[in-house]
Design a protein around this nucleic acid. Structure first.
Lengths: 205, 205
DNA sequence: CCCAAAGTGAACTGATTAGTTTATATTCAT
DNA sequence: ATGAATATAAACTAATCAGTTCACTTTGGG
């Protein structure tokens, strides 16, 4: 009884099911993924799959939130407020872009946006597992930097959201709409630099 | 032979079909919408629907691009370069937010993002019917304002994308993920003001 | 008023899907 | 080794959906 996660039964093939589900959901979306495909990808019988997850929605929720949580925790590191703001922001920009522009980040975003109407709670769950965390980290940092007079940020929430949005500039929408398949290092650099410059022009001391 | 639009046959009930299709697609997405539902909503028999549109995808394409074009053209007005930049930007922000935050804008965006992988060309078609236009208008204006020394914009494309993204701050993602249902006038104002201030801090003369 | 084009409704095909069942096989702790 | 828990393959149900067909009715121009 070491780790009773939710009310979902654990067992030998639990992780195997989750991995297969992740692969297929990320590739085909929620509606597009068939349970037979998932079972095949997981190397598991459909009956086994259903013995772990009573239905497709629960399985999907587990994949979306669990995996997203893991991925986001990796990306969102604490900020060192001793560094100059430009460096703090630069690092933050790179980490956020790493998440939003990754294949996984895009796939989850795509699915969440697509299914959020039919799937109450999915949007919030994703938001809290990922974006909200990096938002909170930024907000805390802005308060701190304000107090130390390293930045002049009257509305930390707005500033955090603005910076986040500046990190998506152009690349995120373009990827989401399939206007391009890959993003070069140079393009990322251009956007990250642009975001930091703009932010400092507005909120720098 | 006054208006042969594409190779799609026109006829008495053409617009009726399109209206029904728009209603159902916007509500249920592409996969979620059934052709029977559309026919019912349009007040038309399925056979009639299929006599106009050989399949569901073509019908959807017609709805997405046609209607989006109309809506976008309404929002994207020419810019008066005589006005002070702050006013130009403010008006632009309001018009873009009007599109992105509208029920229609969100629904189309949601569907495009969801289906763009399975629907080659859909993303580009939407992009060019809508966002690309306002982007071009902004870019032209920045060149003009640069020449007149009313702004100092070294990279007009980047600046246009940054401003566009600043107009989405927080509200667009939150709506897309169902974290809130409506956006108050005060919130829009806060974001629009923030976008203009930030932009001018970076690129103002 | 007539007739051809356009529209209707309802039944049909064929394919796919979520989820269940069953009889059998594998795994593993004792 | 044995037996109970776990997993399997395959067939099955019931529903849904895109697209077709057809016998019939409505519409509107001449």
């Amino acid at each position: 009884m070491n780790a009773a996660a939710g009310q979902i039964k654990r067992g030998r093939k639990f992780d195997q099911v989750l991995e297969g589900a992740q692969e297929v959901f990320m590739r085909d979306g929620f509606e597009g993924a068939s349970v037979d495909d998932i079972a095949r990808a997981a190397g598991v019988s459909k009956a086994t799959l259903y013995s772990y997850f009573p239905d497709k929605r629960l399985l999907f929720m587990e994949v979306a939130t669990g995996q997203c949580q893991r991925q986001a925790d990796e990306c969102i590191q604490a900020i060192d407020p001793e560094l100059p703001p430009g460096e703090v922001l630069r690092g933050s920009a790179e980490r956020m872009m790493g998440f939003y522009l990754s294949e996984f980040g895009r796939a989850v975003f795509r699915i969440v946006v697509a299914e959020t109407e039919r799937f109450p709670g999915l949007g919030r769950e994703f938001w809290e597992a990922g974006p909200a965390k990096s938002r909170d980290v930024l907000i805390d940092y802005f308060h701190e930097a304000n107090a130390r007079k390293k930045l002049r940020v009257p509305d930390a929430e707005l500033a955090a959201d603005q910076f986040t949005e500046l990190c998506k500039v152009d690349l995120h929408p373009r990827l989401l709409m399939g206007l391009c398949g890959e993003v070069s290092e140079a393009e990322r650099d251009r956007v990250a630099t642009g975001a930091v410059e703009m932010f400092l022009a507005r909120y720098g001391v």
